[in-house]
Write a protein that binds this DNA or RNA. Structure first.
Lengths: 106, 106
DNA sequence: ATACATACATTGACAGGCGATGTATGTAGA
DNA sequence: TCTACATACATCGCCTGTCAATGTATGTAT
């Protein structure tokens, strides 16, 4: 288990939603963005990433469509929905509260 | 799933160690302290609390002894070890790092 | 040819959290 | 006296998110 994995557990979906808030994207690209944003400190494991996509799509927080690449590997793009935006806002507020709570307790 | 449960997952042991850093204590009392410290917003579920004690004791982060109550229910007191203190310091530093990481990502 | 990067996907196992349940002691009130 | 409640510890079995391992397919560089 890596340094952060246990502490970031529970934030995976919010992190993905935050990326999709900027623009439609696909798994591989999201992970590249995360690596860049954290100077290589953090990225999602593929199994974690794709199972999060499944959950988010089932919950109608995101929608997917195939990209129209004529060359290279196909890409499945994801787009955040209205529900996803609401969820993101809620999660962000929860994070702010939880952060204070933990700071008070440790 | 409650508001905070998924986000606090992974902090349970650190929260317990933080309490034991102040003084030797026992399950029920630790939970009372947590409730007080958070104005009733947060407490550990008993099953969570006691399984955390088991893990921490196996890992030699805490030690236990029976209280000498002559009346009322018996209490099993826990005491943090040197190893537990080191673990606490490490966890706290990890938390500071993770907090920054998450803030950057969401 | 070979290795590597891009890209998606599933399976099975593991670990932490927790609902449900059980035990036992002592106190307050009807 | 009976009942309810607070204190206090403990375990079982389920659920859920994470992830190692593995597989598929395309394109590029050496």
């Amino acid at each position: 288990m890596s340094l952060t994995s246990d502490l970031i557990r529970g934030h995976t979906e919010t992190i993905i939603l935050a990326q999709l808030l900027k623009k439609d994207s696909y798994g591989y690209e999201i992970n590249k963005s995360l690596r860049q944003a954290t100077n290589g400190e953090y990225e999602l494991k593929e199994a974690t990433l794709y199972s999060a996509f499944r959950r988010l799509e089932s919950a109608e927080m995101i929608e997917s469509y195939w990209g129209d690449e004529t060359t290279g590997a196909r890409r499945r793009y994801y787009k955040i929905t209205i529900l996803g935006r609401a969820k993101y806002e809620k999660s962000k507020a929860d994070w702010e509260n939880t952060k204070k709570l933990i700071d008070r307790l440790i």
